[in-house]
Design a protein around this nucleic acid. Structure first.
Lengths: 185, 185
DNA sequence: AAATGACCAAAAATCCATATCGGTCACTCG
DNA sequence: CGAGTGACCGATATGGATTTTTGGTCATTT
């Protein structure tokens, strides 16, 4: 109760950011939930942005772990890529914080939140890239620059999973697999 | 001067929509530029939307013509597809009306304008699809449903041309060609 | 019959008083 | 002392009353 102040603040902020988004979360309410005074938050974090950043970093670490867990040492390249993409998309769709940020960006369109989401995208792309590089080190020939390949695969996957379904029937999994495979070759 | 009233209205509206966007164009100003009374516009068009629709239809017709002109009867499939995509992208980037609508959607985010842009996308996709179908009728085997292939190619092209360049050096044309080609196979 | 522009209800822009926010810092009290 | 507090500050957001502008109509004119 008396210890763990910083952790309580993080906990409270994480809940609030996930529930209400960035803008609608106030430092006063975080303080109240964490049962500390507002000033105390500022002994641990410089600003609302810094506090948020800490939570986003945790979330991204979780995402990386989910993606990591989906990989299998001996599975073929394209299967691993797809398993990872599945894990990432699944995470994106189920994590309250990311969902809320997405809504916030659409509804309020604030430059601040938009930039955060760009940052998230960047982290995801970097992770995909690192997986590609690791796989390519195993000997598979590199048709494209890993940065470009990561970009291409991720964008296509998002398009096929999310955007396509806005106006069509969902695609069968085999079709998606085949398309991703053809991009790796 | 006395004749051509309808044409003058269309002309004036096209200029105004291109210059100021949908929302910022007023029927009063269109009337003034066209040198007719406001009521006169309503003898030719039911509403602002209808007037706008007429202009959008013209623009889309122009786009189709540009795309059509890029096609060559005897060129290989992938070259034609890319020439057409080039024409479409070039058109999109150079036509004041579409540029302005894009800005408007970003800045004001009105549902109205967003819907219009979806409609434009739909028309472009339909056109790409029709070209694919025509080419496939010539005997090239169909790996995917033309609707899906059109969607995939268009999205990839946009991603490579526009989105990639937001954070990277532009890609050499051959790289883009190669990627598009690999999607058709 | 074709064209007009004063007119209207509805929507949008403008104001401004008030509330809320992120962040600070003099002070408290353990 | 020094970690912790919350009253306080300037800046920004909010709400809602008020004014302006807009799309659309229609009695009147040409």
């Amino acid at each position: 109760m008396i210890i763990d102040k910083k952790e309580r603040i993080i906990e409270a902020a994480a809940t609030s950011f996930s529930q209400f988004g960035f803008k609608a979360t106030t430092m006063a309410s975080v303080a109240k939930i964490a049962k500390v005074a507002k000033g105390t938050i500022y002994t641990f974090f410089d600003s609302k942005e810094t506090l948020f950043s800490t939570i986003l970093d945790r979330t991204m670490k979780n995402l990386r772990q989910s993606a990591e867990a989906a990989l299998q040492e001996d599975a073929p390249f394209h299967e691993n890529i797809q398993a990872m993409l599945d894990a990432i998309l699944n995470f994106r769709e189920n994590h309250q914080l990311l969902i809320k940020l997405g809504q916030e960006a659409k509804e309020l369109g604030t430059a601040e939140v938009l930039e955060i989401l760009t940052q998230v995208e960047r982290m995801i792309l970097d992770y995909i890239k690192s997986v590609i590089e690791k796989e390519q080190a195993k000997g598979i020939s590199a048709k494209h620059d890993p940065e470009l390949l990561a970009f291409l695969i991720y964008r296509t996957y998002i398009a096929l999973i999310s955007d396509w379904e806005r106006q069509h029937e969902p695609l069968p999994k085999e079709t998606i697999t085949e398309i991703i495979k053809s991009q790796i070759h």
